[in-house]
Each structure stands twice: as structure tokens, then as C-alpha cells.
Write a protein that binds this DNA or RNA. Sequence first.
DNA 1: ATAATACGAGACTAATTTTATCCTGTTTAG
DNA 2: CTAAACAGGATAAAATTAGTCTCGTATTAT
Lengths: 151, 151
Amino acid sequence: MEITQETDYAVRCVLYLSSIGPEQTVRIEEIAAEMQIPRSFLAKILQKLTQADIVRSYRGVKGGFRLSRPPKEITLLQVVEAVEGPVAMNRCTREGSLCDFKKTCVVHPVWRRLRTIVETYMKDITFEKLKKERRQEAMAQNILTVRRKKT
Amino acid sequence: MEITQETDYAVRCVLYLSSIGPEQTVRIEEIAAEMQIPRSFLAKILQKLTQADIVRSYRGVKGGFRLSRPPKEITLLQVVEAVEGPVAMNRCTREGSLCDFKKTCVVHPVWRRLRTIVETYMKDITFEKLKKERRQEAMAQNILTVRRKKT
DNA sequence: ATAATACGAGACTAATTTTATCCTGTTTAG
DNA sequence: CTAAACAGGATAAAATTAGTCTCGTATTAT
Ligand code: SF4
Ligand code: SF4
């Protein structure tokens, strides 16, 4: 029971976008390099994130991506669901018709409850929270200043 | 993020075994039919459950399976882990070396925490609990008496 | 205008995992 | 000794995951 590599990439990507200014954009190329994500795969992931209205894309010269709202309003759950669909925990909480036992099954409510627990936890993790921790770490290591020079 | 079909089969299987007497054994055939699990696939699953010391197998005529300890001492987590390995939630909580960022990553602790949450929940669900609910339902519908006749 | 840049969409592919099946061998009750 | 029942390994189809590539469209600087 694990998220996919794709989902982890997506989280890294949104985390990176959380660290830039709200007026800036960054190219796929930059995110891919900084977050160690295969470039063309990331392009696909960003399409999903765009369609889920988590990021917004800008085409052409000077184009790129930015978050479509402040990091505070983007949760881990939203990102996970955008790339891999509902966190159902078991098929029957996603599509009940898949199992004949559903009506009488005593395990079904267990999975439903677990689903709620996981969703609740992930809903509480915003990228604002993550960003803050990240900035603190970066400052402790002077990573941010290094990156500014390079840009 | 879902358990596999195999895992669901395993849970059904252990649930069924929880309902029989501690001295009885049941054949793969019976479990497969009652719990709607492909026979040969179930055989494989039971091997894993045997190796994890959740069930015990008996060969030869009159052979079959039974739980290797009372349902009270078997948790959902044990069964899940027996068939699909650790519930890591993300690769990095299973094998840290898989990610270069691990040391500084602010998301990593989030997955670790979620893992703990899920494990804690599943550890609390014993098959004794499930069995009790199941018996109540069965009695309400007279399923148990029907099954006894058939045997 | 138009060339260069950057994302969008869809087809395609490779690798891995999931979901099984089957065969041969071993154990055991009667 | 033999029929019943599980053990273990090989094999295979289907689904999912992970990733690439090409061509199209939008944007902007010149
Ligand atoms: S057996 Fe119960 S838990 Fe399993 S899929 Fe069916 S309803 Fe869900
Ligand atoms: S980026 Fe962070 S969360 Fe993702 S795999 Fe690496 S350590 Fe884990």
C-alpha cells in the first residue's frame, strides 16, 4: 500500500512551486533538474496538476508554471488525488459494485474508516506548512542564497 | 493507494477461518467457494499466511487449514503485511536509500507519520472483533444454521 | 510577420506488478 | 498402498506504472 513514484514526483513539484514568488513562473526544465524528476514524465504530471487547478501554466517565451492559489490552500490530499485518484484503501470504498459481499461485509466499514483517517490526515497537511519547514532548513544550510545566485 | 485484490482475499480467508472451531480444519476448496476466491490463487495466498504463521496447514486426507492462534491474537495489520509486505505509504519509509532527498526532505516525516497512523489503526483490528460482528449479522439472517446443515 | 520558446495532447513503449493457472512432489489417514 | 490434500516452482496473461516522443498551439521579442 504505497503511493506511486509519480505521486511523489508531483508532491516534490508542488513543493518546489510553493517556494517561488506568486508572480514568478518556472519552466519544466528547472523543476525537473532541481527536484530530480525525468523531464518528460514531469511534463505529464504537470498536465494533471493543471487540470486539477493546482498549478496554472503559461505558454510561450517566458512561460512556465506557478501555483494557481497560495500554498496555504493546497493540501497533500489534493495533490495525491490529482495524480492517482481517490485514496480508497480498498476497491470497495471506491466502487462498491465491485464486490458481492459489500452489503453484509464486516471488513468494509474498516476500510471506509481507514480511508477517512488517511484523508483527514492528508487534508491537514498544506504546502504552506511544508514550505515553512523547508525554508528553515534551507536557511540553516544557506541553500536559498546559493540558488538565487544561479538564477 | 489501495490494498491489492490478493490482500482482500487473504482477509476474507482469515475471517472465514476465524469462524470455525479451533480443532477443525477446512480445505482450500471450501474457503474458495464460500469466500468467492479463485481456488488456485487462494492456495498461493494460504502459503504466505502459513509462512507468516497466521494459519497452520495439515496435509493428506482430512487435511486443510486452521488459524495458528486464536482470532483475538490476529490483527488486520499482520494479515496485510503477510501478503503484501510493509504498509510503507511511500517507498522512502520502506527503503530510505531509494531517495537522495531523504535527509533534508520535509515530506518524508509526513509519510512516516501516516505510516504509523495506518499501522496503529490496523493493529487494533483483531479478527475476534470482526468475527463477533459477523456472527451477529449471520444470526440475524440465519446464515449460520443454513451453513451447518450443508456441512 | 516570424522565429524562438514553452506548454498541450495523444500515441507509443518498456518494465514491473498483479492475478492468476498448472504441474510435480510430498505428506498423511485409513 | 492409495487417494486426498497441501507445498513449491514455473509459467503466463492482464493491468498498471514509468517514461518517451512527436506534433500542435500559444506567446513574446524582434
Ligand atoms: S469482501 Fe468486504 S472488504 Fe473485501 S472488497 Fe468485499 S466488501 Fe470490501
Ligand atoms: S522526496 Fe521526500 S517524500 Fe519523496 S521519496 Fe524522497 S524522501 Fe521520501
